[in-house]
């Protein structure tokens, strides 16, 4: 089983200005490449799923997770950072 370098970030919470800016700023600073963004707002509730590639990242997943979670607390949003494999394993055979 090969371990890939793609990671999925989800962001949930009430909509406000600068969510994507704050997150993509962290990603740019750590050389994490964004591959896909899917974002919706339903009745003021913000949901975003981001697929990123960490092949050239300057930090590991655990550190990125810590940085984003910290930013999430600051913005009062729920941010999760998880390796892509867990989703593939759960939903695809």
């Amino acid at each position: 089983m090969e371990e890939g370098t793609r990671v999925i970030i989800t962001v949930l919470g009430y909509d406000r200005i600068g969510i994507i800016y704050n997150i993509s700023k962290i990603l740019a600073e750590t050389s994490v490449n964004i591959l896909d963004i899917n974002q919706t707002i339903l009745q003021g509730f913000f949901t975003m799923v981001m697929v990123v590639d960490m092949a050239k990242a300057t930090v590991d997943v655990a550190e990125l997770r810590r940085l984003l979670a910290e930013k999430g607390r600051e913005m009062e949003m729920e941010i999760t950072t998880q390796h892509e494999d867990i989703f593939n394993f759960m939903h695809r055979i």
Partner: peptide, 10 residues
């Protein structure tokens, strides 16, 4: 993967 699948896992 669809967004719903990802959010289900989360």
């Amino acid at each position: 993967l669809s967004k719903d699948e990802i959010l289900e896992t989360v």
